[in-house]
Write a protein that binds this DNA or RNA. Structure first.
Lengths: 230, 230
DNA sequence: CTACTATGTGAATGTGAATTCACTTTCACA
DNA sequence: TGTGAAAGTGAATTCACATTCACATAGTAG
């Protein structure tokens, strides 16, 4: 009451709202995301949201944009970082995990019903986002094949989906276990094995994969962040 | 109105309702599952549901029971079918896909927000179901190691999660693409590669993995069904 | 300083769905 | 055949939200 809510330009508010939405989704899930909670998070009154978005649908679209952008940004980053396809994949894996761990809203949106079942347009949108990502991964693999770094007889598309498979179940376990499942450790171990499939020079990464479960007490490593979230 | 709704013993109704729920989830998603729709599906009036369940929560619990049971049934089946660990895994993969393809409600429930975010007890329940399944898979792997069929230096737990990874992303793509993504083909290709990781005798399944995408027009093979659904 | 416009507010309205309850009907069994 | 418990019904209640709208106010441009 003392300080009335400041008025912010709609462009900035839209971004604020979008981030707030992703954050709320991370904490309480997409189903519990509602205009009221969103407004409270941003510090305005519910009806104010409508000054910046058409409604929940609009907000969700915006969230999807953010997710899509984040995923593709990671691809571009690893491409700049190293020329070696295998190394690119490895780093992409790490970045993906880092992204997801800092923004648990992302997997929640991806796995969400609202996306599978809701609005047909949104479903298609999400599908496109995933396909684009997979396509980029497949491109990396193809380039690795061209450089004879990766076995030529395997299908890039299949491998791209398998790459996602290194991440997804682990993330689900992570979400379900409230963070107890150590996704990073799992990913590293899985990567070792996975690498063995890909490499041209035949020798798998059979150096010391220890027999240990992936349950630890939360937390772990933390690759440097560099995402435009707050 | 002519024929009034027959009265059915609660035990049977419960089962009817549970299956109806899974079926509705398959068609419209968990979020759209509501007492009204469920009642209509079963052919009774909404309030009648409360004769058999405490409410949506009760129904959901029952659905989780059904899912858990289906998953474990598959494990037992493959164990009976063959003694070879690798073959058991391969068949489990096929059965899992078959199950999921006939009951799309299952992955929808597993991926669902309602499970991740809703009721804490339900989340834990789902987590337990998954963990149990993974544990069974890990056991198969361990037995394969004991029989020197599978490389001993790899962690059964990690591999079990990777096994899930052969399935999950494919199923998600399948759901998002309205069935266009050919999960079965993907799974077979991925299995070939995956097998190469596991086998003791070193030679990967490098026989002819064709370079083809997995998009086809719906449908495909269809392993024999033997699940207690209708 | 004035006035315009973009933002923010709070009250009001509307809707869909869960749940409850008093009442009715059917079924099984004595 | 009669009766009590189990199962089904429909109306009423409540609730949580989304959405709208008339009004208030803060930036800012002239």
């Amino acid at each position: 009451m003392n300080r009335p809510t400041p008025k912010i330009k709609t462009e900035i508010r839209r971004e604020q709202i979008t981030r707030a939405a992703l954050s709320l989704i991370a904490r309480r899930g997409l189903n519990h995301l509602n205009i009221g909670a969103l407004a409270r998070e941003v510090g305005v009154v519910p009806s104010a949201i409508y000054r910046h978005f058409q409604g929940m649908d609009g907000v969700l679209e915006s969230v999807l944009d953010l997710i899509s952008q984040s995923l593709l940004t990671n691809v571009e980053a690893v491409r700049r970082e190293t020329p070696d396809a295998l190394e690119q994949l490895h780093r992409l894996l790490q970045r993906h995990l880092q992204l997801v761990r800092h923004h648990a809203g992302i997997p929640r949106v991806i796995f969400s019903e609202q996306v599978f079942a809701g609005n047909v347009g949104r479903k298609r949108r999400m599908h496109t986002i995933l396909r684009n990502y997979l396509q980029k991964v497949a491109e990396i693999i193809r380039s690795g094949q061209d450089a004879s770094r990766i076995r030529k007889e395997i299908s890039p598309d299949t491998v791209a989906v398998m790459f996602l498979g290194l991440i997804q179940p682990a993330v689900i376990l992570w979400l379900m276990s409230n963070g107890s499942f150590d996704v990073v450790r799992h990913a590293e171990q899985a990567w070792r094995l996975f690498c063995g499939i890909l490499q041209s020079d035949g020798h798998a990464g059979d150096d010391a994969i220890l027999n240990q479960t992936n349950i630890t007490t939360k937390k772990g490593h933390d690759y440097a962040t560099e995402h435009k979230f707050n």
